[in-house]
Design a protein around this nucleic acid. Sequence first.
DNA 1: GATGAATGAGTTTTCATTCAT
DNA 2: TATGAATGAAAACTCATTCAT
Lengths: 210, 210, 210, 210
Amino acid sequence: MGIAERKEREKRRRRARIMNAAKKVFTDKGFGGATMEEIALEAELSPATLYLYFKNKNDLYASLNLKMLEFLVWRLEELRDQEGLDAEGRVRGLADALYDVYQNDPLILFNVFHLQSTHVLTELPPETLDEINGLSARALRIMAGIFQQGIDEGVFADRAAIALADTVWAVFTGLVLWEESKRLFDSGKDFLKPTLDLAIETIVQGIKKG
Amino acid sequence: MGIAERKEREKRRRRARIMNAAKKVFTDKGFGGATMEEIALEAELSPATLYLYFKNKNDLYASLNLKMLEFLVWRLEELRDQEGLDAEGRVRGLADALYDVYQNDPLILFNVFHLQSTHVLTELPPETLDEINGLSARALRIMAGIFQQGIDEGVFADRAAIALADTVWAVFTGLVLWEESKRLFDSGKDFLKPTLDLAIETIVQGIKKG
Amino acid sequence: MGIAERKEREKRRRRARIMNAAKKVFTDKGFGGATMEEIALEAELSPATLYLYFKNKNDLYASLNLKMLEFLVWRLEELRDQEGLDAEGRVRGLADALYDVYQNDPLILFNVFHLQSTHVLTELPPETLDEINGLSARALRIMAGIFQQGIDEGVFADRAAIALADTVWAVFTGLVLWEESKRLFDSGKDFLKPTLDLAIETIVQGIKKG
Amino acid sequence: MGIAERKEREKRRRRARIMNAAKKVFTDKGFGGATMEEIALEAELSPATLYLYFKNKNDLYASLNLKMLEFLVWRLEELRDQEGLDAEGRVRGLADALYDVYQNDPLILFNVFHLQSTHVLTELPPETLDEINGLSARALRIMAGIFQQGIDEGVFADRAAIALADTVWAVFTGLVLWEESKRLFDSGKDFLKPTLDLAIETIVQGIKKG
DNA sequence: GATGAATGAGTTTTCATTCAT
DNA sequence: TATGAATGAAAACTCATTCAT
């Protein structure tokens, strides 16, 4: 391994360390409440160092979300490409896939939304923005594809596949937010998975032909 | 009308004026981005005056959310008490009711979530907190009641009514968030209503008995 | 009694009411911590009304102190003019006189000092200032007179009477401050009177001839 | 000298610089009148920097007082441990010791009292409070010890040593306050030392046996 | 490359004071 | 005369960000 390569790797490691710290602090305090100093503290680095790896607070936040979206897309692609599944099974698989995403990183939607709600977006460089929007669209398209498959195969009623994907996504987003906000008060209820399962099952029943 | 009464009304009017200004600014800038000065400007008052009507920024924000939740509960009660509707029709009515809430105040969920996600809650006086939680619970209970009615009448499959209410709420929440975030970029798409209709319809189909 | 007279009396009553409220609030919160609104509340008047009776916060504060100083001077004059007392007895009487002042109004020195320490003085109208300084000087002169009497009568050693008065005043001031500050923490110790008695007695012994 | 050591020293130097600026401004304007901005200006730093070294205005003020109390205790201990002094001489030495404290830092009592009178105390972290109370108590105990020595040796009448210490402290406190307040008006009278000397001398005479 | 130190630019919040009624 | 209502002016404090070392 060349020196340059090793350095590159070292750099990525540091980036990851910062992102982990940021994830933690953002979760605890929200975007507005988190301070760069606290993130630095968590990462055992100085605040100034953060700026060597991320242009600014927004950039750090966006990177976090990007990483999460990437996992989402990857997981959905895995579901799409899984063999031996009919459309119905694949839709049911959505519940697991989405829950995986949540498990892997409970923050993902919480933060994705937060990102969008705090107008942080508007201050992001256009490339980053495009990347985020691109990944979101891709995820949705995959979900829509799954529904479309069922429609094409004649097992689902002829609904707008994209709207169904929107619905799934909306349910998921809403449930995550809710779960998280409950966590603040109730002692960590875990109603997400059962409710998500029920929702998906209801949708499957609702669109199944005959 | 007595003098005291007139004064009281005047006072409420002014409170309302501030809340309207706040609603606007919070929508545009988010909680963190909004400044008391900007809200005051919008209300054509001085920042100091705001503090005569609201203890602080958090309090103002919470009041906003309270008002919204009150409308939500009121609208759901209206639906519940509407005569000449069978269970299925009432569930379909949920789409309209929720959309009304959104129309009346697009901020409602956007803000409700925000409120819960930004740890603003933790700094709220307990009474306010109780009020918020109480109203939320009440709204959910009404929705669950509608589903339960259908189950009792034998037209819906025997699912957990509360989980169905959760699902509806989650879809709604998720869609609102999404709609709002889209509004930031795309030129004001209005996909909320059709998607919500579809979701509810799908749910109805999904739980209808044979 | 004429109408004008009655009005005048009414006015004085109101002034007194405000001053009492102010005394209470200043004691509880200190000059900086007290707000005009709180004083108004205590006086069951509106803040604006206070300004009909006192030019501003400083003026109100100064008036309070003036009233206290007047009592001090009056009480010292009483002591000075009391018949059948020799110099030694009169000096001993100082302890009682000063303690009376404190009893009558525990704030007096606390406030007098405060007045002086917070640079409120510098913003006072010169007349008020002159009045305050005049009364202070008069009080000191009376005390010095008492010592001087003893020196003239040959029962006290030939010390500077004015310096002895200063000492008495200083002891008193210091003890009051201390007592008050203790009151903040310890549960209301009352060590003022015994210590004051001891101090005066020690002074008497210290200057007695032979 | 190691790097860490040098840095530590550098830090302390900066703290001291801020404290000196604060001392000056507090003296000129009083606690309420002083602003962080003015202190920063005096220290040739930005206001924000002050907050790197002191948690808030109260903390800065308390630190100032702590430093002063430390000097007081140190000076009294020096007096107590000085060899070749009998009790009477040691009591007389109190005048010098206390005056040294005043000279070294005219603010000490002015501030100590102020600190206690303005409810600044109530907002102080308990540790700081304990430290302040501890040092005060220690100073008093040393003074009482000096009187007790004289009583034990039979040269002083059998008075309560602690009350005598209280008296000395009260005289001192009162005189400082007075001196300072005079300074605001009269052109810098220096009556403190002679009056203090007289007071102590009077006390000595007052408690000497035979 | 890493960081200790510093700060500019805000923001919330407080209050003495005014004034139309 | 009394006051409800409003506010100007200020002050404490915060934090993302920079820069000399």
